[in-house]
């Protein structure tokens, strides 16, 4: 049983770190500000959730696990608000998103 938990937390931690790295790659590769936000979204949601859940499995049923749950809840609550605030500020300052032309669509 301990071994299963150990391997599960190992898998979650590495998946989370990998997803974070993918999001970091996205923030470098994507062409304009509005699309970069989506890459930041990957690391903020599933990437950090996987890392934190992996750590929860490590710590077992304890105060530390409860604190990790609270960190996860705060992240999930605050990250969309911050992202939306940045997007709205960019929009109102007149930054136009790059969009595909209608005829380009397959």
């Amino acid at each position: 049983m301990d071994l299963i938990v150990y391997y599960a937390s190992w898998a979650l931690l590495s998946c989370g770190a990998f997803l974070c790295a993918v999001g970091g790659l996205g923030i470098l590769r994507l062409p304009d500000f509005y699309s970069r936000q989506h890459a930041a979204g990957i690391t903020d949601t599933l990437g950090s959730a996987f890392v934190l859940i992996g750590l929860m499995l490590q710590s077992g049923f304890s105060l530390n696990a409860a604190k990790l749950v609270m960190i996860l809840i705060f992240l999930i609550l605050t990250s969309p608000v911050a992202t939306h605030a940045i997007a709205q500020a960019a929009r109102q300052s007149g930054l136009e998103p790059k969009v595909v032309a209608e005829e380009d669509e397959a």
């Binding site: 923030i27 500000f33 690391t43 950090s48 890392v51 934190l52 992202t83 940045i86 500020a89």
Partner: peptide, 22 residues
């Protein structure tokens, strides 16, 4: 743009939280 920088710094902060926890 300045918003790119803010977005990146916000993401950096989120990763700092993970880093401290790990």
């Amino acid at each position: 743009t300045v918003f790119d920088r803010i977005l990146a710094v916000n993401m950096f902060g989120t990763k700092t939280v993970l880093f401290i926890a790990v």
